[in-house]
Design a protein around this nucleic acid. Structure first.
Lengths: 223, 223
DNA sequence: ACTTACATACCAACTATTCGGTATTTATTC
DNA sequence: GAATAAATACCGAATAGTTGGTATGTAAGT
């Protein structure tokens, strides 16, 4: 459906430009502080175009979250961390990759849907849901590798692949907040290092260490 | 300075009531979406009172962050997790405590300054700074216990007590985002469990891992 | 002919902030 | 300790600018 505009044929259609503007501006100013005019200016379109493509600001928020899901989905799918044979190596490579793309200023490396979640979770259920789908959909792409790694190393744990996958996202989202608070991306990378260390520790020790209670980090069941 | 109003003697002064309202409303709607009218209504004061105490909305944001620092500071200072003799037990107890206070709906258990950071880091440097002070000031209160635990167990690691303390806050902030995205506090608790498991694993093994990885919780004296 | 993709002008509601005023407390003086 | 002065705390209507959204029009593609 999107058709290259005759008026600005080189820059893609207005809808796409608006979504790209939303991605950039909202990560900088937040969803509420970003006005429709801001987006139109950034995208180089008029309000008429805006409301032709999005019936409301909320609708744009939903579309922006979905756009984020699609674009980052493609980005991660083609990323090099899937290459290793060993599934655990793929998980390691994923974390390394996430660390490596923490570059530039926060508005560039932070997560649009994480930001929008904070602002909209109570006021715009539709946006919240689109953000949740984005976050947990991405987390789900890690599950298979984690699961395979657990099987391969005979890890029988009190945690699941799904929960560890979600935890990686929590660490990243939290790391982004600390980076925004300081303006220092190093502080985000530091938390990713902790995440990596955690994963190493989880998989470092086989599960069937018979006789040693509370070895897996679970609080030792008191006798 | 704050003086109990004659008009509403039972509810404290207007300034305090506005800060409490800010704490509650901003956690629900976010900083930008929270209007001055919202705050006045929630606090039961007029706009005149508002602008008597805060010269701008930005100033209120700063004051709200500082109010958060003070109140949560007192709250954590008197919390029971400081009781254990063993410093590592105090760290464990801290994490358990943080998990235990994830109760009710997100607006109740999430962090005001984490929320505000996301929205204001680029537009309101003063607020960002107050939020950063709050987050890292709180993180700093964990450092001594972590440091002591490291010393006691002769952990010589490639991470510092300060960085682990910051990481705990990253995990919590990230956990809050996932909870907001789903509306489910369990998902936040899950990440706190991972954090706890990480800490157990970090301290489970003595630093001089000669032979078998550290089996005992007992501190193995490193050479 | 009909739909899609824009453009322009406009608006009603809302926003943060201002400001002249009153009430209440504190400080000072007698 | 009464009278008075000076702050401080609060009130609420008015304002100027901004906001998301609309109404209406036009030009291009099919």
């Amino acid at each position: 459906m999107p058709r290259p505009t005759k008026r600005h044929p080189e820059r893609g259609d207005a809808r796409t430009r608006l979504l790209e503007a939303a991605r950039d501006v909202i990560r900088q100013k937040g969803f509420t502080a970003t006005t429709v005019d801001d987006l139109c200016k950034a995208a180089g379109v008029t309000k008429g175009a805006y409301f032709h493509h999005f019936e409301s600001k909320e609708a744009l928020g939903v579309a922006a979250a979905q756009f984020w899901t699609e674009t980052t989905g493609a980005f991660f799918r083609q990323a090099p961390y899937h290459a290793p044979e060993d599934p655990l190596d793929r998980v390691r490579a994923y974390v390394d990759f996430r660390k490596s793309i923490i570059e530039g200023v926060p508005a560039e490396f932070t997560c649009l849907v994480g930001t929008m979640t904070q602002e909209t979770y109570d006021s715009y259920p539709a946006i919240r849901e689109a953000c949740a789908e984005s976050i947990f959909g991405h987390a789900a792409t890690l599950e298979a590798d984690i699961e395979a790694a657990m099987k391969e190393r005979a890890i029988s744990a009190d945690w699941t692949a799904a929960s560890l996958a979600r935890h990686t996202q929590a660490v990243l989202q939290g790391a982004f907040i600390l980076a925004k608070a300081t303006g220092d991306r190093e502080i985000a990378r530091e938390s990713v290092d902790h995440l990596k260390r955690y994963i190493e520790l989880l998989f470092d020790r086989p599960s069937d260490m018979t006789g040693a209670p509370g070895r897996l980090g679970a609080p030792a069941k008191s006798t």
